[in-house]
Design a protein around this nucleic acid. Structure first.
Lengths: 325, 325
DNA sequence: GTGATCTGAGAAAAGCTTTTACCAATCCTT
DNA sequence: AAGGATTGGTAAAAGCTTTTCTCAGATCAC
């Protein structure tokens, strides 16, 4: 303890926290000695008294980390300056495991919990609605009167389709995931709104092979072929690009392809690299982190769903403009 | 506090911890009431006394989470039963950020730290060698006298090449990453040992396009073509498979291709799905977690580097046998 | 010079749990 | 039936900070 090295005990605390009254030379001396011996206060003892642990929990059921990692990065980025550390708890859609993790976090007096997932329209398999710590939902369905952050998929889809229209495409098809996904319906809705109903929406699964198959279907039909594909995610887009290449259709010359997610490992490695919609998950995480912190500090936060805008990442799969990155 | 609801205060503690002596009916009653009111002891107070926070830190510089996530899953899996929670700290090769995270974790009295990275032969940009908490290294270079867990890349490579030999391939080429990676040299060494020196090793980068280019190079040469490709990772393998398809070379009929990493998103989505080497990172994380726990509890652990065996995941890109999964 | 005001610093309490020490009241032994 | 052992339970200390209270000495006013 710094007190031993220097002079007293409660004086040390006051000196280091710039609180209480004391001679400035005493304060300086204590600070100097504390720095010399590398004294750092025990956060457990501090937390015991202040009721603040400077710790939050991130609960996720996204095994692959596709969505969780960017969100986590944003949270950490926003909170590290405030001295907050983050418990990461991966629950595999297992209610019992989830409960264990939640209990462990509560025991450790987390200041708040952020729940995140891989789907906007599904809940985590654990009830967080009556905890005595604040809970913020990010990229997963929240409860009544909670704060929820999500991407604005409708706006993102509109961004994509408007871009295709802007670069002169007219026969835009939409190949996407399972229709029971809320975000699929939202994106499809925006697609219809902007592109009209000249081309069908092909619902399937979130895989490359579906993208591949969907292109086969489209090109086997008689009549004019699409001159653009708006795909529900980057994997589908990649499968579609591959199928087009195999058919000798040039991307982006003959057909523009646009994806969704900006999953670098898929989007950037596709040939040509995919123009795609980024859901700005890191920013989403940042805002979720700041919000849970605000709630933990008792600052008022209006409940409700906050939609964060998506951003179009222009690469080479659409043509029409030089890539920005 | 449960004491208020029941009878005393220290009695409650002893009742709940099955310690001390007391009437069995008193013990039961306290337990029952504690359960009824949902009492859970404050881990901060407990930790303050016991010097155990039941908390560890995971430090990583792997932004994509390709390696960190499986390791994290293994750690969490192994430690959740012991009531241990994990702080995840993503440091972006930024020494200052790393130090902030380490300090924050030490302040919070973590019982230990696991350092992990994306490369076996690189250190994290922060010195963890003289901390007063145990440190275990997993999939990153450790310090003298530390405990380090890593994959046995040599064994993994041998597994792959031996498999190719077993299914009758003889002209096996090796397309891999940058030669300055230790694991690249190890894998190439094992490749030479098993396959001899009949085909060249092509060093490049860790991307699909390099796999694609390497196949171009190989097939443009005069003379016999390889009948098998052992690739340094799944992305290279995927690029290679794509290039072969474009050339009309049948995989696996004409050429067997084998990858490394078992990165599901790449390996399983390739057509045909890739046979590949899995580094068992989850098991690696599990062992690292148990080891740091042992050290935290003062149990002796022999320092040194532990190589964990890799496992061959058989899919369709090699032929020769029905896939196991 | 004396009472009032300040100032600097230490003492003590609180926060929650576990552990050790302790004290009554039983129980046993002979 | 009395002394010792056992039992059931409480009181208190410790772990580390922060905060509030207190107090001795110095300063100031008149």
């Amino acid at each position: 303890m710094a007190a031993a090295a220097a002079v007293s005990i409660s004086t040390a605390s006051k000196a280091l926290n710039d609180t209480g009254r004391m001679g400035s030379e005493t304060r300086e001396r204590v600070k100097r000695i504390a720095a010399e011996i590398g004294y750092r206060p025990n956060a457990l003892a501090r937390g015991l008294l202040s009721k603040r642990s400077f710790t939050i929990g991130l609960l996720t059921n996204d095994t692959y980390g596709r969505f969780t990692l960017p969100v986590m990065a944003g949270i950490s980025d926003a909170l590290v300056d405030h001295g907050v550390s983050v418990f990461l708890c991966a629950i595999e859609d297992d209610p019992a495991l989830a409960q264990i993790h939640v209990d462990a976090m509560l025991d450790k007096q987390v200041d708040g919990i952020i729940a995140t997932g891989k789907r906007l329209d599904r809940r985590l398999p654990v009830d967080l609605s009556n905890l005595h710590v604040p809970v913020v939902y990010a990229f997963t369905e929240g409860t009544q009167n909670s704060v929820t952050f999500r991407s604005d998929d409708e706006q993102g889809a509109r961004l994509a389709v408007e871009w295709l229209v802007k670069i002169g495409r007219r026969r835009i098809a939409h190949i996407t995931g399972p229709e029971d996904f809320f975000s699929v319906r939202e994106r499809a809705g925006a697609y219809h709104e902007v592109a009209g109903h000249r081309e069908p929406v092909l619902y399937g699964v979130w895989s490359e092979s579906w993208g591949h198959d969907a292109v086969e279907q489209l090109w086997k039909r008689s009549g004019e072929k699409p001159d653009a594909l708006f795909c529900g995610n980057d994997q589908i887009a990649r499968g579609a690009v591959d199928a087009l290449r195999e058919r000798g259709v040039k991307v982006p010359h003959d057909v523009s392809v646009i994806g969704f997610d900006n999953w670098e490992i898929v989007a950037a490695q596709t040939r040509p690299p995919l123009t795609t919609v980024d859901m700005e998950l890191k920013e989403l995480g940042r805002q979720a982190g700041l919000t849970v912190l605000a709630l933990a500090e008792g600052r008022p936060v209006e409940p409700g769903v906050r939609k964060l805008p998506c951003r179009l990442i222009v690469r080479q799969s659409c043509g029409g403009e030089a890539p920005k990155e």
